[in-house]
Write a protein that binds this DNA or RNA. Sequence first.
DNA 1: GATGAATGAGCTTTCATTCAT
DNA 2: CATGAATGAAAGCTCATTCAT
Lengths: 222, 222, 222, 222
Amino acid sequence: MTEKDDGQLVGSFPIMPKQARAQQKREALLRSGSILFVEKGFDQTTAKEIALHAGVATGTFYRYFADKRQLLMSLLEENFDLLMPPKPDWDNVNPEFFLAALMKEHFGKMNRLGLHRVLPELVSRDPELAEVVRRTKRIIHKQIYNGLKTTKEHGLTWDDLSLDTISWTIIALLEKIPEMHAESGKEPDFPEIAKIICRLVFPPDKLSQLKKIREMSDKKWI
Amino acid sequence: MTEKDDGQLVGSFPIMPKQARAQQKREALLRSGSILFVEKGFDQTTAKEIALHAGVATGTFYRYFADKRQLLMSLLEENFDLLMPPKPDWDNVNPEFFLAALMKEHFGKMNRLGLHRVLPELVSRDPELAEVVRRTKRIIHKQIYNGLKTTKEHGLTWDDLSLDTISWTIIALLEKIPEMHAESGKEPDFPEIAKIICRLVFPPDKLSQLKKIREMSDKKWI
Amino acid sequence: MTEKDDGQLVGSFPIMPKQARAQQKREALLRSGSILFVEKGFDQTTAKEIALHAGVATGTFYRYFADKRQLLMSLLEENFDLLMPPKPDWDNVNPEFFLAALMKEHFGKMNRLGLHRVLPELVSRDPELAEVVRRTKRIIHKQIYNGLKTTKEHGLTWDDLSLDTISWTIIALLEKIPEMHAESGKEPDFPEIAKIICRLVFPPDKLSQLKKIREMSDKKWI
Amino acid sequence: MTEKDDGQLVGSFPIMPKQARAQQKREALLRSGSILFVEKGFDQTTAKEIALHAGVATGTFYRYFADKRQLLMSLLEENFDLLMPPKPDWDNVNPEFFLAALMKEHFGKMNRLGLHRVLPELVSRDPELAEVVRRTKRIIHKQIYNGLKTTKEHGLTWDDLSLDTISWTIIALLEKIPEMHAESGKEPDFPEIAKIICRLVFPPDKLSQLKKIREMSDKKWI
DNA sequence: GATGAATGAGCTTTCATTCAT
DNA sequence: CATGAATGAAAGCTCATTCAT
């Protein structure tokens, strides 16, 4: 039973070194954890279920993770960049097209991972987790902030743009996308959302100027 | 605690009619449930704890609520209007002042209740709860939508305003306010958020026109 | 509400003296207890349910009975004679007709009361109840025994009749009647059972002799 | 207790294979359940107590049985044949000797198991259990019925024998034996009960004929 | 290392009984 | 006396975690 996966000639090259085997199990557990957490919620998922779903014994779970919580933390770390929204590049492309494409892709990734549905309640009771999430958001905020800053310095934005508040607003919009999807039932209207963000950042005249210039090179983003 | 309810003259009315007593317990349980759900999360709060916190016996909890979930539902029903953001009245006042004031008030209420922090994960596994939340959001959306529609018909908004997406965006912003608060650490900058919403709705010229006209009558809102 | 049952002229003769009122409640409780014990089993019936069914408050239950068990004991005492099978009068009537009629009546009473279905498990854990039941059975046994003894002394029975064992056998048969009913689905065949008992007691020649003599006077028993 | 299972030579087989261990626990739980159910009644016995009595933790109980009820069902299934009274073989042996011996053995088994004391009240509220018991009784009835039928066809019984009622009567007697024991305090008089059954089945002349023929071969049954 | 049976604290829920009104 | 809300011990059951094999 344990040998099924390496029915190989005696003496042949071990296809899968010991550590890699362990890695495989760890990853199976992570994958199973991710799936079940999203499906049933963190508290409703038992360590036993995760192990079963991953095809290992209950005890094995505890060899790789101190507890359920630690598995979740590992999941977060591993998918750190997935949780990060893309860094918009405001002035090299038609901003509306570009944003719409970026958001569509980000939304797809988020939805595939699904972890964002698990975090909200946990954050309120797990300070360490809360800290991780907060740090992540701050990085995102910083990225958007810096992008906006450069753009502002180029004189492309509203004069009175509050970089900080706009950054949070953009994050808020990005985070709401999955929920808008779930609650309205329709696919989010990414171009419209992009338009909204652009309206927040660029005065109409600057925006149409940007759009004209970048129009051709943007075709690839659609 | 036991003395609060009979600071009255000797010989006056019966201290507290029977039903009022029961109501008091029910409400104590609701209050305790609300506090503990927000503090520790729904799943981490036990019925026993709620009872203890409310100063009644475990069994008493079950006289008033079938279970924890039902207590939560009652909390939601009872605070239904708190969850509703205010209906903005776009063209009778300086929109920015007005919105800032409304949001500040709403934010205060939401924060005091705190339930919004409990719902997200629950919604994903409790279809009935999900339905309640969905219905609430649809009403909110409708209200904002209708307000915007009237404003648009008055020719005050951007010509290309997508009423639906803007409505969702405003909801997203309102809902994010508590989190912005928690995550940034600072008090949300309501005037700035109001400005953002106004920028989404009104072209600059229409907005300054609105602001000038309403400036005086708005003093009362500050 | 409490006055509904004596809507009488002021000053008129109180139809129901105080004690009788109490008696009424006591009896309502006994009746409700009996019904519910038989319907759902002793342990599955709560004091609250009995009170509700009897139309009184929970607390009132405990004014009339120390606890559920005591109510059961009262039920037994009150229906003591119902539990007693009839004393057969072997030689004044056609024994088969007579027995069949007696059993039919007894079976009807037992079934209406139904308590026999509640006792078995209780007896094994309640020594006092066990003693009551045992005493009852001993009296029954004695009655049957004495009847048989007289009959034997008249030379009407088998010579080798073991009075004791036959008495228990008759009791066994009587007690099994409700179960035979429930399990076979059919109405018990009382004449057949009577025939069996008679065959155990009387040799064929003595029996036909008895039957012939009593034939006419028995018509009334059918 | 822990030593019973390895009275073996050092160096021999592994003491107890894994599955056997589990079986041991399962059986310990069954045994403890049986004992406690009989001692205190089904409802008065808690899963915790059974586990404690079996020397395992509460949770272990639930690894082997879904609940108390299922343990009882397993007990019944496992002892199905114990509950079945022996199939009498009417015409190959002295019927009285044979029956007495059979009943004595059956009585011993029943008494050791004791479950018959638990079933009566449960049956009235557990339809599945009721069905199991009913099925069992029907099989027993059928067996006795068929035996009697053959005997009747051989012309050995009373001409007017009602096979059905006699079968139920015999079952009633068999089932009452433990109670007769408990209530009279004396050891049941098996030979007398056997005589009673024989008197119900065989006319005196046929019986003495049967007894004479089989007298010698029966010695072994005593 | 891997296994999964075993553990037992702890949660939800019920109900006999009390007692203020 | 009657009431029924309140009590809290205790039952059924789950699951994170350990540990002998």
